[in-house]
Design a protein around this nucleic acid. Structure first.
Lengths: 202, 202
DNA sequence: ACTTTCATGTGACATTTGTCACAATCTTGT
DNA sequence: ACAAGATTGTGACAAATGTCACATGAAAGT
């Protein structure tokens, strides 16, 4: 089986690859971000993609959407450290087959990948499934673009840098940040970063 | 950067080495116990030592004391499975720069090693340190005041709010922030917050 | 005594940031 | 067809931020 591991952290990429390739007949390639993942898919279509959610450039949800659109037969499993409700609904809406936590032990992850291969949808028990209604985007206060901008703000990028990365004008990014701040009832980008990291880890 | 991994368990030694050497420019040697570690230090001085506490022959605290005495410029991070209070104070008294739990995910360990490289003292949140504040990140290169300001910036306060809280003039706080940024090689307070939380909570 | 470091402060300056008003597309659903 | 919302953009403006030069006093080390 051909796997594609998408994660911005090189260490996780490599250790996952190392781990999964101990399983007979499994091979794994890696990608550093959503765009990279798309390119790798075009080169050689994997059976299953393990996709991190929070990534710079093109986040996991966005990447899932794009890849599913172009290659609907690929199965995508979100793999993340967070039990974030909002992201789960986004991920499901984007077409993901599963949602696993990185805290899952190695053998558990392999087992679940096997299940997905057979056509199952898997969700880790740490994941709150009450929000598993594709319509429940109401919980997603932020639009996709806004989530994208938020993730970049939370890595410490300036508006200009974010604009360059997303091919937008700096003014647009500033507006986006402004809207995000209002929606989340925060004051400035520093609080945004704090909020982001506190809520993703806690 | 040159690392030295000291652990009596061969499996842990090797997997840590494997993991850490995936990081660009990092090389790692290993030692099985405290005495071995001392010998390896004399052969080739590492930048940072990851030291297990419980070892036969010469335990981690003892080894830390000896090595720090002979090679004070080496930075030593205790790496252990236990949240044992008695050991942590001993470790600090022996001169260790940090105290991490083996349960910390791989990327967290690497982040923290980077922080130690820059002169930080890091303590995992699972570690109970009655004297320390919940945010147990103290940077050596920063003065007391600067650490104080940093902690407040990292909660999302503005310069004015920090000034009010510490009974300082806003200008002083701005200067302090400016110095912190330069010392940590960061650009703005948002990056400061991100950096701070990545190194304290991860 | 002398130097260094820290803590504190001021004033000036350019830049960044966040807000507001407004507007042109484009998609989606009714 | 129309409404609603998302996306993108501009221009103007006030506030916050970060940098620099400079200065004073206290504490600590040599």
């Amino acid at each position: 089986m051909k796997l594609l591991i998408v994660d911005d952290d090189g260490l996780i990429r490599d250790s996952l690859k190392l781990m999964l390739e101990t399983t007979d007949g499994w091979t794994a390639r890696t990608a550093a971000d959503g765009e990279d993942a798309f390119v790798k898919c075009r080169e050689e279509l994997p059976d299953i993609i393990l996709m991190d959610i929070r990534m710079p450039v093109c986040d996991g949800v966005e990447a899932t959407r794009k890849i599913k659109e172009a290659f609907p037969e690929v199965k995508i499993v979100m793999l993340t450290t967070f039990t974030d409700d909002g992201y789960i609904t986004s991920a499901i809406n984007a077409g993901a087959e599963g949602y696993l936590l990185k805290s899952t032990p190695a053998d558990g992850i392999i087992e679940r990948i096997r299940a997905v291969e057979k056509g199952a949808m898997v969700f880790d028990k740490g994941v709150n499934l009450s929000a598993k209604k594709p319509e429940a985007v109401i919980f997603d206060i932020l639009t996709e673009r806004e989530n994208e901008v938020l993730a970049l703000v939370a890595t410490g990028l300036s508006n200009g840098e974010i604009a360059a990365k997303l091919f937008l004008s700096p003014g647009t990014v500033r507006n986006a940040v402004s809207v995000i701040l209002e929606k989340l009832e925060l004051r400035d980008r520093t609080q945004l970063a704090v909020y982001y990291w506190r809520n993703s880890v806690g």
